[in-house]
Design a protein around this nucleic acid. Sequence first.
DNA 1: TGTATTTCTTAATATAGATTAACAAATAAG
DNA 2: CTTATTTGTTAATCTATATTAAGAAATACA
Lengths: 188, 188
Amino acid sequence: MKSSDKEMANDTRSKVLELKEIIETKKVIKGEVLQKQGDLKIKSYYVKKGLLRSYTIDDKGKEHIFIFAPEGWIVSDMESQTKGSPAQLFIDALEDTELEVIEKNILDQTSSFTSTEQTKAHTLNLVNRISTLQKRVLLLMSASAKERYKDFLITYPNIIQRVPQKMVASYLGITPEALSKIRGEMLK
Amino acid sequence: MKSSDKEMANDTRSKVLELKEIIETKKVIKGEVLQKQGDLKIKSYYVKKGLLRSYTIDDKGKEHIFIFAPEGWIVSDMESQTKGSPAQLFIDALEDTELEVIEKNILDQTSSFTSTEQTKAHTLNLVNRISTLQKRVLLLMSASAKERYKDFLITYPNIIQRVPQKMVASYLGITPEALSKIRGEMLK
DNA sequence: TGTATTTCTTAATATAGATTAACAAATAAG
DNA sequence: CTTATTTGTTAATCTATATTAAGAAATACA
């Protein structure tokens, strides 16, 4: 997680928690699955402590990690939720995690905003996600696997120590073997 | 543009136009550049008629199209604008275009929202962008060039007739030669 | 209308990263 | 602790896409 995102997360935190739509606090253990591809009731999760991830499994059975969500992040399958279609993403816990369950979808949440501050905090959250995704798309289109890995190291310095390498590979869109080779080259 | 996005665009249109931050209507001709990499004053553009695109140029001088923006869409370099850093993206006109210039950044816009409807319309706009980018990231990570091209044909059926093939290739993250080959294969 | 420029196609060759396989190292489980 | 399972490494081979090049087709321009 880069520092600006960290700040963003902490910044929005109190505002997010203020909202009435958060009804449930939950603890899950490592490996627990919160959402499966095909699920119809789609919720979002605010991570208080621990680490979640969201990912797809493609036709060939291969996993592709969409995001890692450490402390302060919200995971949600926004495409599916907004369209009202079944969940596209799996969500599970990579560590024992404390989280808040957000039942309402983001559009319904806007109705209960009571202050400009709240609106701003939520907008900031959305804008930051767009920024992250913009960067990710541009990197996927223009950078080599090694360049994307280097960027990952800088942008998310503390994730590497918390997840197996094969998950970093899955996030980067390459195989574990390819990542191993890249790391080997980078040592020299 | 897929139908759900089309609806989104039309839906938000009036709300976007209502906002006071839109100060200037402008006509630009094909080829005109609205923003260059490195620009410091970053604006957003609402397309009333015509077609804009945003793109980067990488170290090797290669162009990568980030989005096509036909009627009803907003183009903006959100990452740069939010961070306050110089523009990362070029924005130019692929057709003669009528547009509205939005000077304020999205966060400052929230302050002038006067109704829940307005907040909702803007949130919907952001959520739809996230959905589009979520899909794009997952496709870039898991699908072959041919699969991505097929998806493009379905998702943006009317863009193909309006831009040269090499730009479709640039959007897909492949070379014009590769796209030509794929199209050749698909004819059989 | 004719010429210049840009775009598209085809093909040969090169390359990054995938696949497969086998083994080593680390972690989890009994 | 000991064994089973998961993860990481290395290397050989394969494949999708890039690169280079050259000509054809389309488009813009003088």
